[in-house]
Design a protein around this nucleic acid. Structure first.
Lengths: 134, 134, 134, 134
DNA sequence: GTGGTCTAGACCACA
DNA sequence: GTGGTCTAGACCACG
């Protein structure tokens, strides 16, 4: 899996890693079962401290995206979120309310947002989720 | 303008204020030209440190949402973002890519996201933006 | 809140802290809204590295037991677990299956376990949970 | 004896084996005197490193659950714990205090815990222990 | 003052 | 080799 950092971004390094992994899974670029680079390896590749990678992997484990197994490595999983439906619905609403508000303040119209959202949705492999109706 | 804080949120207080103001504008609850409460007044109402309110107002000014006039107060503006179209489009795409990715990892389907997004768009008064086509 | 470490325990320090806080809440010794000692303060009191305390507080936040607010501190919350009911039921069963198995291998009888469990349940203030029937 | 691993668990493999053996004994699925699969055999069946099986068997021997006899294999024993009663009682209390605290934080009531515990106790063959009253 | 992020480097446990 | 824990100490962001 290819992970690149934007050193100019205000986003913390470990969060950039977290998002990169989640995005790869969402795009279908990476698949459950796949092994992530080892902590030391990724740290070397990105020229950052191993602890920063550890933090990212910890966060991903919390989010149910990976499992870390001592001695063998860090693997993508297909567990998905274990939050209750109500929690998840609330998070989704929050997420989109933010996005809509920000888009408004960027000067876009509702139609602009719909179009751009369709584009983003197209890049995500929702097929897996389609099966288990909400 | 009514601003409420969520003490259980991990979001910094000043950001909660920034978002509350932007959201009020987006919903149409507040209108350009309107005067925001004074720093001291809002700090007292929310029982927070005045410096925190100052920080929020500074951020809002940076975002082009308010103008602060020495001695008379802080006013909502309708200038909107001053960024170039290209940069704003990039921000919009970024925004929605994040949202789509997060929604995926929450276990939702594309249809779920569309529906929830429509709901959010309904709550935002895009009319003002509709005029100046992008 | 009083937190003590057992230096002879094999349990990681940060986990000892996590359990101590959860136990205090469960016993009713501490209550939601209460402020935990600051990272630096607790680190000094326990003569450990601040990062170790940070780790414990991170874990507690993940578990929905505390909120950490930058600049103001770490507070006990009453959010409780946000996992789905199925998840929580599974965890409970797992927990008790382990306990029962371990008790068996310690040479105790079912009646011994029941009695000891009643004692433990008595020390936990389940009243809060009683309200929201499962 | 059937031993299965959960590859999605964060629990170390050797501990999963240890627990599986203890659980089989507790459920009555396996009986004292029975021979465990050889290190090589089990390693092959589970597709894991033989050293990991060795480690599990060592742990089981330390726990008094098996005896390993040079050249002939590893056998389940009925010796049980060799700890003093006081120490065992302390361990039992610790165990259950943890369980009760965790159950509380999962949002369950005392009655929920009692019911789930009964279910777990039912799956354990305590009869053997009943004889030697504590 | 508070917590948040990152680096550097040690030592241990697991496979 | 892998990840897990802990220490030490830097600098930044929030209130």
């Amino acid at each position: 899996m290819l992970i690149r950092l934007d050193p100019r971004s205000a986003e913390p390094i470990f969060e950039q890693i977290v998002f990169a992994v989640k995005a790869a899974l969402a795009r279908g670029t990476a698949s459950p079962g796949e092994k992530l680079p080892s902590v030391r390896e990724l740290a070397r590749d990105l020229a950052i401290n191993p602890n920063t990678v550890v933090r990212a992997y910890e966060q991903l484990e919390r989010d149910g995206v990976v499992v870390r197994r001592q001695g063998s490595g860090c693997f993508l999983t297909d567990r998905g979120s274990e939050l209750g439906l109500a929690q998840r619905r609330r998070q989704l609403q929050d997420l989109l309310r933010r996005a809509a508000t920000d888009a408004f303040h960027l000067g876009f119209t509702a139609e602009d947002v719909r179009a751009a959202m369709e584009q983003s949705l197209d890049q995500v492999q929702f097929d897996k989720n389609e099966k288990e109706t909400q």
